[in-house]
Amino acid sequence: MLILAIETTGKHASTAVIDSDGKYFCAESTNEMSHLREIIDLSDKALSNAGKSKKDLSHVAVSIGPGSFTGIRIGIATAATLGQMLNIPCVGVSSLEAMSTGISCDERYKSCELIVPMINARRHQIYAGVWQNGTKLPLKKLNEDRQYMIEEMTKLLSSEYKDKICLTGDGIDAYEEILKKEPGNYILADENIRYQSAKNIAMLAAIKVKAGEEVSYNNLTPDYMRLTEAEQRLREGTLSSRIKNL
């Protein structure tokens, strides 16, 4: 087994290769939002770090979102192309679940009962979910992962969960002020582990492959996790009314 994992849903693109011994070989871009330009080079880099080439791959895994829309599409398109070209199966992994998994493997957050990854979806919105921390993977999901208002999530966390919570993801950076105002039993994940990373995608992909959760390249589907148009219209913003009243 040799899996190449691609993560392009965050600011920095990254790739990772995991072999059958569970060893990781990673590569990450230092540039922001340059996924399209760099993803193939980064894939080659992770493979060469592992001393392997594309033809040695058994699977290609990708973060299917949520996260940057353009990033999700670049990742899926790249993974599907590699899958088709090399005639190997693909594995789709949730960016949020992968972020939770990354935290669960870090000693620093062992005391947290819950892990809540939150990806900034702008305008007070986040893509988020609630996972139970533990050593057994995959982690147990306690609350539906979807689009939330940040205030809705802080309210949910303070009313439903009394345990110590590790927050992670770039939603922390975007809504730091709101999180400060709503003090909860939080620990904020350190910046060196806060963001999407292909290593976590690789880790979950290896588990999924063992469970037989692989798909053919043409069944790899993105999960933008966006509200449907109807829902969006319902909360039609104040800008529309400002324009009408002008």
Binding site: M33, F69, T70, R122, Q232, E236, G237, L239, R242, I243
Partner: peptide
């Protein structure tokens, strides 16, 4: 969406068409 709260300025002509997804 990635540009709308990004590092620059967005100027949107005919913005009334897309007002429902622009920042309030």
């Amino acid at each position: 969406e990635e540009y709308l709260e990004g590092d620059g300025v967005c100027i949107i002509e005919w913005a009334d068409i897309v007002a429902d997804v622009l920042p309030d």
